[in-house]
Write a protein that binds this DNA or RNA. Structure first.
Lengths: 173, 173
DNA sequence: CCCCGTTTTGGACGATCGTCCAGTACGATC
DNA sequence: GATCGTACTGGACGATCGTCCAAAACGGGG
């Protein structure tokens, strides 16, 4: 793992721990185990580290989804696949932090918009192939609902997959 | 409007504009049109202003919901009432910011948990009275889904009420 | 061994942070 | 008009911020 990669990993951790606006260059350097000046050697600015770390984490956690989704044949299976993938991605608060930060950073907004569009397209394609009505709208709402569930789960662990899946499954009918 | 109320209003605005972690005492004072020292005259600390402003805004935007919900007789009406109430509350990113901040502040976590529990209870009661299955789980998922929709809408205005309502309506059947 | 480009260090700089406090402004009470 | 408590001002304090930079450390080719 290069120093650059360690800095990006540290950024992903610290965004979740401290919040997007409270991550400093010295925190990043300390977490990565390097001197404080190295951040501006590898990156243009502190926000640039956060943006690259967040978009990378988003893309990584969604990279395997299309293949996984291909194994699902019924709506309940598809929802289970998606929820499992998001569970394993871990640190789901990073998603929410990144969305909020994207409302204040144009570069990040574009990157997040691209990832979200791809996620929606993956879901919508599966829905259309399995005769779910209004696949685009359903995919858009499902993506938003999943984000909301991940956020609420951070405050209320009782919002388990077993509780969520049957209810969200109704939108796929 | 007293100075104390102006400070709370300024806090609610600035949380949305700058993000929870980027609101400073001097910003608050300037927005409220007062000197910089007045913040610590009325409040114990800067986070205390944000916590009181956020919890107040949450409670205010949900205060009228029970009465409005009593006028709805079909699931689609109920969803329309809730979505309208959230629309009119405005600045929906404040909800998301507050939820995220609550994962890092125990006082705020309790306050947000109380408001959320009350919101769920209001919804669940209505659902139970109108024969919607699993009212508690449905209310919990619906609350989370609505939060997610508000967050996504900040990035994608195309996620209109007209597009969301029919899809979310499926969970109420 | 020396040289040189790459990488890393640690500190300097000015700006801003949260908090605190001595002092001012002002309306109510005598 | 003098007194007094409440409300507010504006600046001081040390800490931390983002950024920059001179110097040290490192590693492969001459």
């Amino acid at each position: 793992m290069t120093v650059r990669e360690r800095l990006l990993a540290a950024a992903a951790e610290l965004i979740v721990e401290k919040g997007w606006g409270a991550v400093s260059t010295r925190m990043l350097a300390e977490r990565a185990g390097v001197g404080s000046g190295v951040v501006h050697y590898h990156f243009d600015s502190t926000p640039a580290v956060l943006v690259e770390a967040a978009t990378g984490a988003l893309r990584a956690s969604l990279a395997g989804l299309p293949d996984l989704l291909a194994t699902a044949h019924r709506p309940d299976d598809a929802l289970d696949v998606i929820l499992t993938a998001l569970d394993e991605a871990g640190g789901q608060e990073l998603f929410t932090e990144t969305f909020l930060a994207a409302t204040r950073n144009e570069d990040l907004r574009r990157a997040v918009g691209d990832v979200l569009a791809e996620f929606r397209r993956t879901i919508a394609t599966w829905l259309a192939e399995h005769d779910v009505p209004t696949p685009e709208a359903t995919a858009a709402v499902l993506a938003a609902a999943l984000d909301g569930v991940m956020l609420h789960r951070a405050l209320d662990p009782a919002l388990s997959r077993a509780l969520v899946a049957p209810v969200l499954g109704r939108v796929l009918r």
